[in-house]
Simulated scan of single mutants.
Amino acid sequence: MPVPSKERVIELLADPVEREGYDLEDVVVTAAGKHSLVRVMLDSDAGLELDEVARLSHVIAEIFDATNDFGETPYTLEVTSPGIDRPLTAERHWRRAQGRKALVDLDGESVTARIGRLDDGVVDLVVKDGREFAVRRVELQDVKKAVVQVEFSRPDARELDLAGGVPEGRVAPADADASDDVNEEVEGFDK
Rank of each mutant, 00 (worst) to 15 (best):
Arg131Thr: 14
Thr30His: 09
Ala54Lys: 11
Leu103Arg: 07
Asp129Met: 07
Val186Gly: 00
Asp45Asn: 14
Ala97Phe: 05
Ser153Glu: 15
Asp107Ile: 13
Phe64Ala: 05
Asp23Asn: 14
Lys101Met: 11
Thr112Arg: 11
Ala176Gly: 01
Leu24Arg: 04
Val9Asn: 05
Arg136Thr: 03
Ala174Arg: 09
Thr30Phe: 00
Asp142Cys: 02
Ala157Ile: 11
Leu140Lys: 02
Arg170Gly: 01
Ala97Arg: 02
Glu151Leu: 08
Val171Gly: 00
Ser153Met: 13
Leu77Pro: 01
Ala134Leu: 06
Ala32His: 10
Gly47Leu: 10
Gly164Ile: 01
Leu37Cys: 05
Asp129Ile: 09
Val79Phe: 04
Glu49Gln: 15
Val38Thr: 08
Asn68Cys: 01
Leu48Ala: 13
Glu187Gln: 11
Arg154Trp: 14
Glu187Phe: 14
Leu50Arg: 09
Lys6Trp: 00
Arg19Gln: 15
Gly165Ile: 07
Val17His: 10
Gly169Tyr: 10
Pro74Phe: 13
Glu25Phe: 00
Glu132Met: 10
Thr76Pro: 00
Asp181Val: 09
Pro167Ala: 08
Lys34Cys: 00
Val27Glu: 03
Ala176Tyr: 10
Thr80Asn: 12
Gly164Ala: 06
Glu78Leu: 05
Val29Glu: 11
Arg131His: 12
Glu151Ile: 12
Leu77Asp: 08
Arg86Leu: 05
Asp129Trp: 04
Ile60Asn: 09
Leu37Arg: 12
Ala163Thr: 08
Ser153His: 13
His93Trp: 07
Gln141Trp: 01
Lys101Ala: 07
Ser36Glu: 05
Glu62Phe: 01
Leu140Asp: 02
Val150Glu: 00
Met1Lys: 07
Leu162Lys: 05
Ile63Met: 08
Leu125Ile: 03
Ala14Gln: 14
Val38Ala: 10
Thr112Asn: 13
Asp107Leu: 15
Asp23Arg: 11
Ser110Leu: 04
Arg137Gln: 13
Glu18Thr: 13
Thr73Met: 08
Pro173Glu: 15
Val111Arg: 01
Arg136Trp: 01
Pro16Ile: 13
Gln141Ile: 02
Thr80Pro: 02
Asp45Ile: 15
Glu25Gln: 08
Asn183Tyr: 06
Glu49Cys: 03
Val122Thr: 12
Gly71Val: 15
Ala90Ile: 07
Leu162Cys: 04
Arg100Ala: 14
Asp177Asn: 10
Pro2Phe: 05
Val28Ala: 15
Glu109Met: 01
Ala32Glu: 15
Glu91Phe: 02
Phe152Val: 14
